[in-house]
């Protein structure tokens, strides 16, 4: 099955390169003045997002659809709160246009 193959893992790894390049371009465009700890926080939030998606879809694969949706809602609220906090932190260091 393709979804359990190493090829999929390779694709997930490979697309990280353009993703990071795109993120760098975006932050420069928005003049966010990123530094190491801002990138770390952003990376952690993104990892959490991927982890939650992986978690919820694993539950769906197990047939625990109701649990998956409830969990997604629960995680969504947490991710949203953390995301808003992250954006506020990133925007606070923005250079004057």
């Amino acid at each position: 099955m393709f979804t359990t193959s190493m090829l999929l893992m390779l694709i997930i790894g490979l697309v990280t390169v353009p993703l990071v390049m795109g993120a760098v371009a975006l932050t420069r465009d928005m003049k966010l003045n990123m530094n190491w700890w801002k990138w770390t926080l952003t990376g952690l939030w993104y990892f959490l997002l991927l982890f939650c998606i992986y978690l919820d879809f694993t539950f769906m694969g197990e047939g625990e659809i109701a649990a998956a949706w409830k969990l997604l809602l629960f995680e969504g609220v947490i991710l949203l709160i953390l995301g808003v906090g992250l954006v506020r932190i990133l925007l606070s260091g923005r250079s004057a246009v």
Binding site: L8, P18, L19, G22, D56, F57
Partner: peptide, 24 residues
């Protein structure tokens, strides 16, 4: 770069969802 990054993020999120579905 930004457009490619956005597409890459979409692919990655989709792939992770597919991998999760398969893991379950």
């Amino acid at each position: 770069l930004k457009a490619t990054g956005a597409v890459a993020a979409g692919i990655q999120i989709g792939a992770v969802a597919g991998a999760g579905l398969a893991a379950g």
